[in-house]
Amino acid sequence: MRKGRVHEVCGPSAFGFAAVVAGLAGTRFLWVRESWQGSVLNPVGGGAFFDPAMLLVAQAKDQLDALAVTEEALRDGSMPVVIVELSQPLSLKAGRRLQLAAKAGRSTGLCIIPEGMGSNAAETRWHSTPIYDPKDSTLNCWKLIKNKTGTNGAWNVRWQAASRRLHMVSPAGE
């Protein structure tokens, strides 16, 4: 994923995708969410992907506040990765503002969006689904469904918790 841009992810295991992104970056990151949402991130479970001490959570009142916080954090640059959970579709203006903020702060943004509510301003959009695998329980299928600077594609990936590394699995191997 390119730095200094804002990306999007949807699908059943979007949380997992975000956790992997944060874990691969290995830096401090900010998780912005709206406080009314029922499902919460479990730092004990997240420990397999990232170091929970690196995590800061911002509880915003509504999506407007969440976007304002995200923009501020992206522009500041002291948080290399900012993840935001969105519940409503993003307007083109808001998406573009996030892109400019990310560019100014040289930080990566990731929006977790409900399915089919992507914004045109996003650099890439990913769709992440878990796949059943008799041998392993971290196999995921990541589909790149929108890419501004290249072609789309699909990869099967597997997470190795001990070394915090991502392993690519060839689809033919299934």
Binding site: F15, G16, A19, G38, S39, V40, L41, N42, P43, V44, G45, G46, G47, A48, F49, D51, P52, A53, S137
Partner: peptide, 15 residues
């Protein structure tokens, strides 16, 4: 603070 240890796999999201 450090000291995060999960003796068994725990889910990433709780509801």
């Amino acid at each position: 603070e450090g000291g995060w240890a999960a003796p068994r796999p725990r889910p990433l999201s709780l509801f």
